[in-house]
């Protein structure tokens, strides 16, 4: 594989997979929590939260990337704090690429999970409570299993979005080969070089294959889960 794609191309594919998996997995708990807040709770500032979550969807990705850089650059207040306290650096690292992908994918994930929450009859949760289940138990035994298809959809959407994320990533962490150059930025880079069309095509093929693979796997999983949930 690395022979066919070249060391640099192979590194970009691996990095993109790593970035997308981490971005998806780490944002999932937050996505489930935020979707719950938006679907089930009424509180002051709900519209503000909703707006902030959706901002990356409507802002130009470059703007999102630049805002991340302003907040999380090594000399920016939040970035410096995180580096001093946790030794966590985002700027121009693969971690930054994962964060940018997570931020960009977050609204899609939240929307999918929120829809799933709204489809759950709160009456079922009441019934579970009357049978002696405390709140957290109701969530684990009734709500969570019922929104599982939505969580799955949200996760796949987020993964696909992370695989394709370009603008915010390149603005926030640049495209350093082997360190922060993801698949889309590698394709973009190759296209800048005259005569490298074949390499660009190879990367495009990998990109399509990964996306299709994710879609097929998610379809199969979603069908299984929703069958189980619908009780057939």
């Amino acid at each position: 594989m690395s022979g066919w794609l070249g060391a640099e191309g192979w590194a970009a594919v691996q990095l993109s997979l790593k970035v997308s998996v981490w971005a998806t997995l780490l944002s999932l708990p937050f996505g489930i929590a935020v979707a719950w807040l938006l679907a089930r709770k009424s509180f002051a500032g709900k519209q503000v939260l909703n707006g902030i979550v959706h901002l990356p969807l409507i802002l130009p990705p470059v703007v999102t990337g630049y805002l991340l850089l302003l907040m999380l650059g090594r000399r920016a207040p939040v970035g410096a704090f995180l580096e001093e306290t946790f030794g966590l650096v985002f700027a121009f690292r693969w971690t930054g690429a994962a964060l940018a992908a997570a931020v960009m994918a977050f609204p899609l994930m939240v929307r999918a999970i929120r829809l799933a929450y709204e489809a759950v009859d709160p009456g079922l949760e009441e019934a579970a409570a009357t049978l002696g289940a405390p709140r957290w138990r109701v969530f684990l035994t009734v709500t969570l299993p019922l929104i599982l298809p939505g969580i799955l959809t949200g996760a796949v959407l987020a993964f696909a979005k992370a695989m394709g994320e370009f603008g915010a990533t390149i603005t926030f962490v640049s495209a350093i080969p082997g360190r922060t150059q993801t698949l889309p930025s590698a394709i973009y880079g190759v296209l800048q070089v005259p005569g490298a069309e074949a390499q660009a095509m190879r990367l495009v093929i990998v990109s399509i294959a990964v996306a299709m693979g994710a879609l097929v796997v998610s379809e199969i999983l979603a069908r299984r889960v929703s069958k189980r949930v619908a009780g057939q």
Partner: peptide, 28 residues
Amino acid sequence: PVHRRRLGYVFQDARLFPHMSVSGNLRY
């Protein structure tokens, strides 16, 4: 709180858990 009242509530619309079998519901 509801879960500590020890009452059996049968709702008009049954409200069975769709992701569990009948015995899963009974043993909930």
